[in-house]
Design a protein around this nucleic acid. Sequence first.
DNA 1: GTAATTTGACCATG
DNA 2: CATGGTCAAATTAC
Length: 300
Amino acid sequence: MAMASAPACAASELVAKGRKSAAFLQAMLGQQPASGAGATPHGLQDLADEILRCCDRALAALHGAMEEAAHAAAGSARKRKPEHGPVAIPPATSSKRIRLSGGERATRRVEKKWTMEDGFIWRKYGQKDIHGSKYPRLYFRCTYKEDHGCMARRQVQQSEADPSVYLINYFGEHTCCRDDDVFAAESPAPFVINFGASTRDEYPSSSPCWPSCNEDDGGLVASETSDLCHSPEEKELPAGMGNEAELIVESTPVPELTSMSSPEWDPLDGCLVWDIGFGECLFDDIIGEFTPLDYVGLFQ
DNA sequence: GTAATTTGACCATG
DNA sequence: CATGGTCAAATTAC
């Protein structure tokens, strides 16, 4: 309900402002001439960079929480099987087969990441060479499928256009972290923004499914409904890996990969690849764009 | 010894 | 029949 999403929205705005400040800091550091042999701006830049990334992930986590809240709130207005976690996809819109156990149809979203890491723990259960694709498709299911009956699955495939990019198809939702007991006990933790380097320790094995702010994480950044997604990159998705995505999630190139050494790198755009432009716009606007239409009503 | 991964086989779908 | 998704035995790693 709105009462659940309002604090999340406020927190999201705060994180967004923090991120903006960090972006400016990083920009200022980038403009600083490397004067003073001892003063190494790279260390500070790395720090600012990490702050940016943590903010991004915090936003993503908040976004995910709001999405959950939105789904829960919209339960009466939107089609959702109450006894099944995954949201049903209208079969009529599905032209390609998506075989799911028990014939279920689940939420599906596509991410493009620079790493396969997403903070969740997956177990690989298959690999398949895909016709016409240079790279095999890897099949993963949640490690906690047995323990919690979590039906979350994902398919990972390297992009042919850019092999450094992984196209990750997510099916179903993680229920292993949504159990009432677990969620009640752990709910504060996932949204704690820890700017330190030991964030991984914030999420011990008791709640391993929450996306964590770790070094390897490519960063889940944003998601948009297919109606909102106009990214041309969606067209780059190989057959069966995004053409019918319910959600397209643009993911972040880790800044240090290119941006820190690139003179054209825009510090305000270095951490997130959004369909929208960053420019000088306030983050409030970004949140507006960041927020799927489903949630807009909840925030007002 | 246990858990995770690999990989070929099987099955469903178009 | 071709292709993609999943299963499960074998293998490997810890």
